[in-house]
Design a protein around this nucleic acid. Sequence first.
RNA 1: GUGAGUGUCGCCCAGCGGUUCAAGGCGCCAGGUUGUGGCCCUGGAGAACGAGGGUUCGAAUCCCUCCACUCACCCCA
Length: 423
Amino acid sequence: MKSGETRLYQAPRGTSDILPQEQYYWRYVETKAANTCQLYGYERIDFPAFEDAGLFTRSIGAETDIVDKEMYTFEDRGGNKITLIPEGTASICRAYVEHGLHNLPQPVKLYYFASVFRYERPQAGRYRQHHQFGYEAIGDDDPALDAEVINMAWQLFQSLGIPRLSLILNSIGCKICRPGYLAVLKNYYANYVNELCSDCKTRLGRNPLRLLDCKNLSCQQIADVAPKSADYLCQECAEHFSQLKRYLGLLELPFVVNHRLVRGLDYYTRTVFEVQPEAEGSQSTIGGGGRYDNLIEELGGKPTPAIGFATGIERIILNLKSQQVLVPPLPKPEVFIAHLGNDARDEAIKLSFKLRQAGIGVIESTGSKSLKAQLRQANTLGVNHAVIIGDQEVKSGTVILRDMTNARQEAIPLARLEERLKQ
RNA sequence: GUGAGUGUCGCCCAGCGGUUCAAGGCGCCAGGUUGUGGCCCUGGAGAACGAGGGUUCGAAUCCCUCCACUCACCCCA
């Protein structure tokens, strides 16, 4: 902590630096995710970190908390209303419409990694900037596609090696059958208004579906025996849901239907699902998604059904740690080059470059530290080999190759070093 | 936005009104070998104790305000 005149800057609230020592978790997750996508035929898309603010009020829903109080919205110098993206689906749909991706064979399958921004009070597993991996399959309403998307999510977590997860499923109907269900639901809740928590009282008017997933204990008891959306589906939605469950059965996925799963974004229709870790802290969701059959049309495209999934990488990593999953380290340079004296340093500079050109990772000692200090550094860096060049070696055209794992070393001709390191 | 807890060297943390109040561990640097690591030993650098104000003869230790962090609610990844 330096005081004085200089102000000490900190990363803004709810953001964080990902230091080198943490990176292996990130690379691990990204690699597994990208591999899974490749396996299922999903292609990567990248989109801007900010969008026109209207895109989100239009898609996520004006009555949702994200839009209501969590968006980073500002006016840029040109007077445009800009929002730092709070999620990825809206952007993908925008891109789908904007670039006419309906001309591709349907469904179009896309995945992304993106930073998303939500103005919230940070806590465990919740940040103002976090990183999502997600994917979408656009242009088909076949329940087999739902099954694929759900299966893919489940397989991703399998490949990551996170144990004790559950897969929760529900169907919340479409614009034909949902209004009827909502009416029944409100009617049911009308009898319990006085027993609801204050949040639920306001939800009753604004977003009755959300009454179902309240964490308050007494509200839960009321929600437990509330009318179930799945019982009020129209013919098509009911058929869709039962087909989906059958396919998931074929895939032997251990899903559980929970009629209280509703999700917080307005665009969802029919299928909604979540992957949840064993209860631990307050973050009960590690990933989730669902179908959004009206969204593309809502954004100005042709009526186009779609389904997607998203997961928070920070939450995945939290779970990897709490479940003590073994994550492989990142590769690092093989060789450290130590030198003593000016001539030796010249030699070391040339040699480092030559080895790197041959594809051998090298960390070159800088400064003029003692050999002891240089080897100590080599040791903490964890390299397998140290190459030592002193004046004697320069004169004789050799180097000392030291095996750091067993402390054996030998002098070898400079010209033979590369070949020795490669074997 | 609401509630609770915390804030001492890069990290972990002792001290909880005064008499070494700034301790210890890790890490870092150096020495113990004149050109050699990991173990061990020795030494060193690094903190005016989140910021500002107050109480007091005296505060890191008490009070107030602010800030930050953490956890929880809301909501979600």
